[in-house]
Simulated assay, not measured.
Amino acid sequence: MKNKVFILLVLSVFLNFSAFAQEKTKKELKAEREAQKQKEIEALIDSKNFVFEAQKLTPQGGRLINLDYNMYFLNFNTEKTTADLPFFGRGYNVGYGSDGGIKFEGIPENIKVEKKKKNTTIKASVKGKDDVYDLMFTIFYNGGTSLSVNSNNRAPIFYDGEISAPKTDENKK
């Protein structure tokens, strides 16, 4: 009887140690994944070449709107920045029958990068066809990003989404 109790005690001790060892490795794996993601995001920020995909927006004085489709984007590049984002809010000098969204293509100017402990802020101005857009990205190291767009002809609007590496022709295939 004593032998059975002793064997059960030894087995339970070994099982507990193996469970603790597995839990620690899960935490380590999670920390490694987070560190890898942070390095990828920092590389995107340093290259100043990334794609912002909008998932939510908040117009000035409005409430949060979830965007159902992953088709709203801003391709940020130092050579050419393009955007196709929805707009809900007040337009001041927007012509009747014109496109309601924020769509532009241009070269960003006055790019300023400010790195902080938990995020990075990128500010830039892009002159589009009919307007000048002031962009302010707040990029967190998990990939989550806030984008503020101010322009002369529209009220400010705020987007939430994620940044990722641009898709090249090799990635599309």
Rank of each mutant, 00 (worst) to 15 (best):
residue 2 K to W: 08
residue 3 N to E: 14
residue 4 K to C: 04
residue 7 I to K: 15
residue 8 L to Q: 12
residue 9 L to G: 08
residue 9 L to M: 12
residue 13 V to G: 06
residue 14 F to A: 15
residue 15 L to M: 15
residue 16 N to E: 05
residue 17 F to M: 10
residue 18 S to H: 02
residue 18 S to C: 11
residue 19 A to I: 15
residue 19 A to W: 11
residue 19 A to P: 02
residue 21 A to H: 03
residue 25 T to W: 06
residue 26 K to C: 04
residue 29 L to G: 09
residue 29 L to E: 15
residue 32 E to N: 11
residue 32 E to P: 02
residue 34 E to G: 02
residue 34 E to C: 06
residue 35 A to E: 15
residue 37 K to F: 00
residue 37 K to P: 05
residue 38 Q to W: 02
residue 40 E to W: 00
residue 42 E to R: 14
residue 42 E to I: 07
residue 44 L to F: 04
residue 45 I to F: 05
residue 47 S to I: 00
residue 49 N to S: 12
residue 54 A to V: 01
residue 54 A to P: 02
residue 56 K to C: 00
residue 57 L to F: 06
residue 58 T to G: 01
residue 59 P to E: 05
residue 60 Q to Y: 14
residue 60 Q to A: 13
residue 61 G to A: 07
residue 62 G to Q: 09
residue 63 R to P: 00
residue 65 I to S: 01
residue 66 N to D: 07
residue 68 D to V: 09
residue 68 D to A: 14
residue 69 Y to D: 14
residue 69 Y to H: 10
residue 69 Y to M: 11
residue 70 N to M: 09
residue 71 M to Q: 15
residue 72 Y to V: 01
residue 72 Y to D: 10
residue 74 L to K: 06
residue 75 N to S: 12
residue 77 N to E: 05
residue 80 K to M: 11
residue 85 L to H: 06
residue 87 F to I: 01
residue 88 F to C: 00
residue 90 R to D: 14
residue 90 R to P: 01
residue 91 G to E: 12
residue 94 V to M: 08
residue 96 Y to R: 10
residue 96 Y to A: 15
residue 96 Y to C: 03
residue 97 G to F: 11
residue 99 D to Q: 08
residue 99 D to H: 06
residue 99 D to L: 08
residue 102 I to C: 01
residue 103 K to F: 07
residue 103 K to C: 02
residue 104 F to G: 04
residue 105 E to R: 05
residue 105 E to G: 13
residue 108 P to K: 10
residue 111 I to A: 04
residue 112 K to S: 13
residue 112 K to L: 12
residue 112 K to Q: 15
residue 113 V to Y: 03
residue 117 K to L: 11
residue 118 K to G: 01
residue 118 K to P: 00
residue 119 N to P: 00
residue 123 K to M: 10
residue 124 A to Q: 02
residue 127 K to G: 04
residue 129 K to R: 11
residue 130 D to S: 12
residue 130 D to L: 12
residue 132 V to A: 07
residue 134 D to W: 10
residue 135 L to I: 07
residue 135 L to C: 06
residue 137 F to C: 06
residue 137 F to I: 07
residue 139 I to E: 04
residue 140 F to Q: 12
residue 140 F to M: 03
residue 140 F to E: 10
residue 143 G to Q: 07
residue 143 G to T: 05
residue 143 G to N: 08
residue 144 G to H: 12
residue 145 T to Q: 03
residue 145 T to H: 05
residue 146 S to T: 05
residue 146 S to M: 11
residue 148 S to C: 00
residue 149 V to T: 00
residue 150 N to Q: 11
residue 152 N to F: 11
residue 153 N to V: 09
residue 157 I to C: 03
residue 158 F to G: 01
residue 161 G to I: 01
residue 162 E to Y: 12
residue 163 I to K: 04
residue 164 S to F: 10
residue 165 A to Q: 11
residue 166 P to Y: 06
residue 167 K to V: 10
residue 167 K to P: 00
residue 167 K to A: 14
residue 168 T to L: 03
residue 169 D to K: 09
residue 170 E to F: 11
residue 171 N to K: 13
